[in-house]
Design a protein around this nucleic acid. Structure first.
Length: 740
RNA sequence: GGGCGAUUAGCUCAGUUGGUAGAGCAACCCGUUUACACCGGGAAGGUCGGGGGUUCGAGUCCCUCAUCGCCCACCA
């Protein structure tokens, strides 16, 4: 097909995208080792690994569009550019998904056993990974596939075990019996960050434990009251002062004997409820703290199935909901109920399963975020090797020192606030899919009970001898994600990649995982490598539908990016997700906007047709620029000004501004004005020199347009570039960004 | 309860360090023998949420109020 014939039809994305991506892959240029020319500066970024739970959604498309645009820009600037791909095993999410799939065939995971079940999960994960990779490619992502990583592969497992052992040896990982967030549906512990609060109306009951008990208390959870071991009052409260220190024996509280001590605590609000608080140490974190301070016994009365235990026969074995009814009725029958009042309450639910969280005391593994230790190596600003710091300190300093810059910067405050409220991170999970905790116990029983160092072996490899039993739990998925910037580069081995590409330049991700992921990466990386994980964090917003709702399967409003690509082409989709979308701001996805950029692609296509067909016998490369008239010189100079402006913007990741400016220039200046004003000369209505001047100007502008637009619209620009009249040229991917 | 964001053309949103308001879509008029109807030309549309302040000058900085939204939190 000749150049002219090709451009006679409207631009058809489907016909070029697959072909062009193949050309890019075969060129090897996505791998920084293969990039041409002398490249002394590096630019590196890791892909936030999508969960292997299924397909990509429009949010992923948004992320890929932004990152690929930045990466292509940096590569064209002449940097040794690495964008490293991977996927996340997403422990709980993936396991839950596979369990649901198996349930359709009537299969339960315990029927299969751990090994068989994991085989199924791995098959699913691999399948899902393949889908994700092919979808990612369709977005035009210039990822170095030769370095593909998975959070649960062997190399990452080595990193995880190494990190765990080091933290254990430094006393930063400990095993402790504490009140944790138990998910009765998922049958596992979850971290504080995996809790979602749901506002519900509840009844606030005010009652006495028994007729002779002097103080009334209020609660929304009467069913936990069989586990009470104290009542706390404010020490300044005149009403209750005289009881402080006394212990009351209650022979029968709904069939259960209670022993209640009256304690004093300034955290109790005199004005709230009755001004007295029933303390349930085993089933509330605040109560647990009070119990520790006052040396109160902890009485576990709710088990892992959210059923009552260790109470009287009336309640034992009852679900918490039933137990509540029984106790409420019992209180009424015995004239102990004083008041029932409706109130709004925040109920903790598990992010993944939706189950109501049951706080329970359990023996689990934690990361101590407050313990001071000596940082062995440090390239961090303001912290020397050997300085005493806590993990919290590290997380705070890294951002406070501006060594890490968060965009937009209003997220700094949110980040600091989170750190201040951060409690020890519970990292063990009672699920099968994930990194097995690298801890072995001297016997089976010890796994359930032991907290003593000499009965526990922690190591990268299993201990010698047959008697050791490995902990059956796995790690929170964010533990391995936290290592992502350096585990993907080969850590703990001292690889060349690690030296060249770490710290990475940018982390681009959604603001919804600032705590889950960004903060954990800063924690892990500063501690384990003495470096920051990345210099800049670019937080994008959530993509919502036209009615401003989140995309979800249950709403049925999910958009498959592949359908959009099918209709409008990848370049149009990318532009619609980038133009005028400020960082951190949620965006409303609109097909109309995508349509507008499909038209823009066609506009560009027709400019190509016009420029190429009007310069067919023109010798672009040997044209003497001194012959240009002021008219052309001014136009070219003006565009050069624009280029310097957008180059600076792009370096500051302001691609939402750049894309709009380029769009405006191409359509409303180049096409609407400059092309029109060139027509007379091109039709030989003026002089030969004028015609040549215009021909040169058009080609020169167009060359720069294709290059500057390439990061945003890689497919169409690369395709048009193949016909550009230059003898010496590379693929546009590795052409030099035009700067003056 | 604390923190944050938004409020700009009918709709969805940009507006970089303060210097006479921008885009897409929609709506209006005109135009089609060639780069493009996935188009062109033209016109219309905003006291930048209200009020106050700083400044020669404020969409932009400060204060205050209102509405909507988000995040965090142990009032049991």
């Amino acid at each position: 097909m000749t150049t002219n014939e090709k451009f006679l039809k409207p631009y058809e994305p489907k016909e070029v995208e697959e072909k062009i991506y193949k050309t890019w892959e075969e060129s090897g240029f996505f791998n920084p080792d293969n990039l041409p020319g002398e490249r002394t500066e590096q630019f590196s970024i890791v892909l936030p690994p999508p969960n292997v739970t299924g397909k990509l959604h429009i949010g992923h498309a948004n992320m890929l569009a932004i990152e690929d645009t930045i990466v292509r820009f940096q590569r064209m600037l002449g940097k040794k550019t690495l964008w490293l791909p991977g996927t996340d095993h997403a422990a709980i999410a993936t396991q839950t998904k596979v369990e649901k799939l198996l349930a359709k065939d009537g299969i339960k995971k315990h029927d299969l056993g751990r090994d068989e079940f994991l085989k199924k999960v791995n098959e699913f994960a691999l399948d899902s990974q393949n889908t994700i990779i092919s979808q990612t490619k369709r977005m035009g992502s210039s990822l170095d596939w030769s370095r593909l990583a998975f959070t649960l592969d062997e190399q990452r497992n080595l990193a995880v075990k190494t990190a765990f052992k080091k933290m254990y040896d430094d006393g930063l990982i400990y095993r402790g019996e504490k009140v944790v967030n138990w998910d009765p549906k998922g049958q596992t512990v979850i971290s504080d960050d995996e809790i979602v609060y749901e506002e519900r109306t509840a009844v606030f009951y005010t009652f006495k434990y028994s007729a002779d008990f002097p103080i009334a208390i209020s609660t929304t959870r009467p069913e936990t009251k069989v586990g009470d071991t104290a009542v706390a009052v404010n020490p300044d409260d005149e009403r209750y002062k005289k009881y402080i220190g006394q212990t009351f024996e209650i022979a029968d509280f709904c069939g259960t004997p209670l022993s209640i001590k009256i304690i004093a605590d300034y955290s109790v609000d005199k004005e709230f409820g009755t001004g007295a608080l029933g303390v349930t140490p085993a089933h509330s974190k605040i109560d647990e703290m009070m119990a520790i301070k006052n040396n109160l016994p902890m009485k576990k009365v709710i088990n892992e199935y959210a059923k009552i235990e260790n109470a009287g026969d009336i309640l034992n074995g009852k679900k918490v909901g039933e137990a509540k009814e029984i106790i409420v009725n019992w209180l009424k029958e015995n004239n102990l109920m004083i008041e029932e009042e409706e109130t709004q309450q925040n109920v903790s639910t598990a992010e993944r399963t939706g189950a109501v969280i049951e706080p329970l005391p359990k023996l689990q593994w934690f990361i101590d975020v407050n313990k001071k230790f000596k940082l062995p190596h440090s390239n961090l600003k303001g912290i020397k090797a050997g300085d005493e710091v806590s993990l919290k300190d590290l997380m705070k300093y890294a951002v406070e020192s501006s060594e890490i810059q968060i965009l937009p910067d209003r997220f700094n405050k949110i980040y600091y606030h989170w750190i201040e409220n951060l409690r020890d991170w519970c990292i063990s999970r009672q699920i099968w899919y994930g990194h097995r905790i690298p801890v072995w116990y001297a016997s089976d029983k010890l796994q359930v009970t032991s907290n003593k160092k000499d009965e526990i072996y922690v190591g990268v490899d299993a201990p010698e001898g047959d008697d050791w039993i490995q902990d059956s739990d796995t790690l929170d998925t964010w533990f391995s994600s936290g290592l992502w910037t350096f585990s993907t580069l080969g850590w703990p081995n001292e690889t060349n990649d690690l030296k060249l590409y770490h710290p990475t330049d940018l982390l681009e991700t959604g603001h919804d995982i600032l705590f889950f992921w960004v903060a954990r990466m800063i924690l892990m990386t500063t501690y384990l490598t003495g470096e920051i994980p990345f210099k800049t964090v670019y937080l994008h917003g959530l993509v919502r539908d036209e009615k401003n709702r989140k995309f979800s399967k249950s709403l049925g409003n999910a958009i498959d990016p592949l359908d959009i690509i099918e209709k409008y082409g990848t370049d149009a989709l990318r532009m619609s997700l980038i133009v005028a979308v400020a960082p951190g701001q949620d965006i409303r996805f609109s097909e109309e906007k995508t349509m507008a950029y499909k038209k823009f692609a066609n506009k560009l296509w027709n400019i190509a047709r016009f420029v190429y067909s009007n310069t067919e016998n023109f010798d672009y490369e040997n044209f003497d620029v001194n012959n240009l008239a002021d008219y052309e010189k001014n136009i070219l100079a003006k565009f050069d000004d624009l280029i310097s402006e957008i180059t600076e913007e792009m370096k500051e990741y302001k691609l939402y501004l750049t894309s709009e400016k380029l769009y405006h220039f191409v359509w409303h200046e180049m096409a609407d004005v400059i092309l029109e004003e060139s027509k007379d000369a091109l039709a030989d209505k003026t002089s030969l020199q004028d015609k040549a001047n215009k021909q040169f100007m058009l080609l020169n502008l167009f060359e720069k347009v294709l290059k500057t637009l390439h990061p945003f619209m890689p497919y169409i620009t690369e395709e048009i570039w193949t016909d550009f009249p230059k003898k010496q040229k590379n693929l546009l991917v590795v052409e030099k960004w035009p700067t003056t």
